[in-house]
Write a protein that binds this DNA or RNA. Structure first.
Lengths: 167, 167
DNA sequence: ACCGTTATCGCAACGAGTGGCATCAGCTGG
DNA sequence: CCAGCTGATGCCACTCGTTGCGATAACGGT
């Protein structure tokens, strides 16, 4: 993790930091750089991988117990519009956020073992699918919002070929 | 319109009807056929396409105002286990149910115009993707739970090259 | 440094959906 | 046909997330 110091306002113009100059980017749009936003951005900057909205709320509360959920969610919306992060929906449909400009990726869930894997847009199966939809219907699929659910190879193996539908 | 829109068909599928003999199938599993379940099944039998849980609750209430949401949701779970219906998650992550044995299909959403289309597992792009995941990682994707989000060709065209990153 | 504009905050109410638990009632066996 | 077993219901409280609204404070201009 090269980015972001854990301290105050928008310093840390690290070359790789997605957060550098965020305050100015907000202001350039007529938006504002508030303590609450700084807190959330700070939390996000120390976050890797996936987080749900409620997890973020919780982490913010650890730093500032007065954090209000709606403020967090609204700020997340703003950050998403700025392209700083994006969200997708987990296997249960719940929101999951992840930070950019980490490579865009989707998710693969096994509904049996609960395992999950990231899907880069470059992986052959994914790339093929994207290209196919592009060609076939001119549809541009948002990889970062891609969620696939099914059974992983391990679970299929252990299920055997038996049509044993548990339950 | 190729898009999905119809919500009402209202025809009893005689042979192969998903609902015929449902009471007995429940009882065979030690489950029970109750008035509340009959109501929901009745509503479902008149439903085609996609419905959200809350929509179903609402429709049940139109018939019986005393309908309790948790009962509806629990019954939906039961029916899903019986294989009578299945659910997926819409573009916003909200649950959507659809009745079987309509062919399994996924959904394609345009996040800009809100349009939605069904994706049959036989469509070339889909079939190709399924096969690719199968070959590449031995993963079996659940088509009925498939949700793709992106931009449709029409919206891409009207966006042109303009930087309309609206919303 | 001050001021006005207005984006944002905090709060409270709401909507969707879930889980616990006491009570009720479908079903089956006698 | 009745009684008991146990699955289902109804209700309540809770979580996650959203929305409306009055109050607050960030920001640009002077």
């Amino acid at each position: 993790m090269s980015a972001i110091g854990s301290t105050d306002a928008g310093q840390d113009p690290g070359p790789g930091g997605a957060w550098s100059g965020l305050p100015d980017r907000l202001r350039a749009r007529g938006l504002r750089w508030t303590p609450q936003r700084r807190l959330l951005v700070d939390v996000l900057s120390r976050t890797d991988g996936h987080v749900t909205g409620s997890e973020l709320v919780e982490r913010c509360r650890e730093v500032d117990a007065t954090t209000i959920p709606s403020t967090v969610y609204r700020t997340l919306d703003v950050l998403e519009e700025l392209g700083v992060l994006s969200h997708s929906h987990g296997a249960d449909g719940r929101e999951e956020f992840h930070v950019l400009p980490a490579s865009e990726h989707g998710h693969l869930y096994c509904r049996r073992c609960g395992g999950q894997w990231e899907l880069s847009g470059e992986e052959p199966p994914v790339a093929a699918a994207l290209a196919a939809f592009e060609l076939d219907r001119g549809f541009e699929i948002d990889v970062s919002h891609l969620t696939l659910v099914g059974r992983c190879s391990a679970c299929r193996a252990s299920d055997g070929s038996a049509a044993a539908t548990e339950h």
